[in-house]
Simulated scan of single mutants.
Amino acid sequence: MRVCALSMDALSKGRTPMDRRDFLIAGACAAALGGAQALKPRRMVNLLDGPELDPVIPRKFGRWTTDFDTEIVAPKVPGSLEDKLYSEIVSHTFRDTAGKLPSVMLLIAYGRSQSDLLQLHRPESCYPAVGFSISNRKLIDMSLPKGQNLPAVEMTATAGDRVEDIVYWSRLGEFFPQTAGQQRRDRLKAAMQGYVGDGALVRASTLRGADNNTPYFPALQSFFGDLVQGMPNAQRKVLIGTDRAKALA
């Protein structure tokens, strides 16, 4: 802003050969300042009703159940990347009570502020960072109860003999970006609308043997449908957004 101040001062002192350049610089600075003010968030939008997410995730729904002694415990380390990115990480392992489907690992990473500095980390980046290769990646419209669809991603992560099928989606405010580019676009949209939204990355995965060539994507999508249906009516929006939650109600 010092350049702008000097330029405006020069304009006020009379005409010089530099008047036109000073005027252009001052105009550019004013435009930049106006743009920055327009993009400055003026409010926060959080779809989580209450201080914590974990209590609203059911332990039993549909054909699925989880036992407290089998839950995954992943405490945040103060100052770690997870601690900076997310307000809460919920992680449980569910088993099929009929014994026909493999166990499903559910992980929900929730952040109250999805700004430029704090944003969801997508599995396409996290898994390769620890040695997994990605295949079968596809953008999907996942079916939910009552004819609702949700933008999601399915993919397979492989490292040695470990084959993990994954279905996940990300919510940023009321947006559901399926790619990193869409996520950046939607953050900008939210900023232009004057708010910073909370965010959630909801991931379910299951393991299969390396000799099994059939991914478990349909089972994982069915799991998510049961999960959403089993949640308290007023709390579904934290995972699937306000409009879909109202439709399911």
Score class of each variant (00 low, 15 high):
215 P>D: 00
113 S>M: 12
163 V>I: 12
150 L>C: 05
236 R>E: 03
28 A>E: 03
43 R>N: 15
210 A>S: 13
191 A>N: 12
58 P>R: 00
101 L>A: 13
157 A>Q: 10
202 V>P: 01
139 L>K: 14
42 R>P: 15
241 G>W: 12
190 A>Q: 04
122 R>P: 00
134 I>K: 09
12 S>R: 11
94 F>R: 03
120 L>F: 02
180 A>L: 05
197 G>M: 07
16 T>C: 00
179 T>R: 02
230 G>K: 12
94 F>P: 02
219 A>F: 04
145 P>W: 01
159 A>P: 01
3 V>P: 01
124 E>I: 14
22 D>W: 10
214 T>I: 06
105 M>K: 06
197 G>E: 06
108 I>F: 08
139 L>P: 03
191 A>L: 10
199 G>Y: 01
63 R>P: 00
83 D>Y: 15
88 E>G: 09
225 G>I: 02
111 G>W: 00
168 Y>A: 01
182 Q>A: 06
174 E>G: 09
231 M>T: 05
132 F>G: 00
25 I>L: 14
103 S>G: 14
57 I>E: 06
27 G>L: 15
178 Q>I: 02
53 L>N: 10
32 A>F: 06
147 G>V: 12
92 H>G: 07
157 A>T: 01
163 V>K: 14
168 Y>F: 15
113 S>P: 01
210 A>M: 13
55 P>T: 13
58 P>G: 03
211 D>P: 05
18 M>D: 05
36 A>Y: 07
105 M>D: 04
170 S>R: 05
138 K>D: 14
142 M>P: 03
204 A>G: 10
124 E>F: 04
21 R>Q: 01
199 G>M: 00
196 V>H: 02
154 E>L: 11
74 A>N: 07
119 Q>Y: 02
214 T>K: 13
48 L>D: 03
209 G>E: 09
89 I>H: 01
36 A>C: 05
11 L>W: 08
53 L>H: 08
110 Y>T: 05
88 E>S: 06
195 Y>A: 03
153 V>L: 10
66 T>L: 08
39 L>K: 11
220 L>P: 12
16 T>H: 01
55 P>K: 06
232 P>L: 10
213 N>W: 00
190 A>L: 02
119 Q>D: 02
124 E>R: 04
223 F>C: 02
29 C>M: 13
194 G>N: 03
191 A>C: 04
207 L>Y: 12
133 S>K: 09
41 P>S: 00
25 I>V: 08
162 R>C: 08
83 D>L: 08
9 D>K: 13
118 L>N: 11
51 P>L: 13
35 G>C: 07
62 G>M: 09
41 P>V: 02
134 I>N: 11
